[in-house]
Design a protein around this nucleic acid. Sequence first.
DNA 1: TTGCGTGCAAAGGTTTTGCATGGCA
DNA 2: TGCCATGCAAAACCTTTGCACGCAA
Lengths: 140, 140
Amino acid sequence: MNARPKYKTKQRDKLIAYLETVPGRHITAGDVCEAFRRDGAPIGQSTVYRQMESLVGEGVLNKYIIDEKSPACFEYVRPESHGAAGTCFHCKCERCGKLIHLHCEELEEIRSHLLGEHGFRLDPRRTVLYGLCEACQEEG
Amino acid sequence: MNARPKYKTKQRDKLIAYLETVPGRHITAGDVCEAFRRDGAPIGQSTVYRQMESLVGEGVLNKYIIDEKSPACFEYVRPESHGAAGTCFHCKCERCGKLIHLHCEELEEIRSHLLGEHGFRLDPRRTVLYGLCEACQEEG
DNA sequence: TTGCGTGCAAAGGTTTTGCATGGCA
DNA sequence: TGCCATGCAAAACCTTTGCACGCAA
């Protein structure tokens, strides 16, 4: 978890204000750029990338990698859960591509188990569980 | 799981022969290209990409994504475990890159839980659990 | 002979970087 | 004033695609 940037800029404020309107949703850097463009007040894409990467370091955003050809997803974390391990797990259907978000207590136990028994600290932000969703299982 | 390609080519044979020399290790398409280049018998990179993608479909290779800027990793699966529902889970350290194979009863519970409670059939062959290994946690 | 596989080069798309300019403290 | 942040354009990177040629069956 890195330090904040030293300066408070208009772009940074606007970016955070926007992110607060989409808590818990998955958005990409491109989404953000487009949102500002539609607003008639575009922000440079390198600024968006740099600030968002910084916000990940500050714990304000989570960053998820779903697969190599999709852009990275960012998710706004509400201030009250900044410290908490309030991250979600992702399941992706190999067949239809559907992405499922799991906020599940029991999956937290996996993390403790891996840490306690195997010394491995699981990072849910980078981990995607692949498999078949309910609908696709039925289709055979 | 898709069908095999219709033709048996020299390039495909050489590729499989090479993969058999690195079972259980994670390699990238670039690694493969370079290995053949060093051998003095290069293979076109598009051929490598196309054949490896095909081998993933055949179940001969697993494909893993670490993060968006690293190239995709492929892992050779030995023939004897092709059909098996590979009770082997993979943990990969995001820092040192170490690959850990876990054969653990308790992790089987993840699968039952996901299936029972969330209707999701986890495929351990496609799934890598990312995080930090013991040594890298200590280094901070 | 048929048509799939190969290989080169170029495109594709996301993210990063160089560098001059502008704004925060 | 001093330094950081911005923004444009271009680079970097991995991967895919178009197309002509060659090889497997």
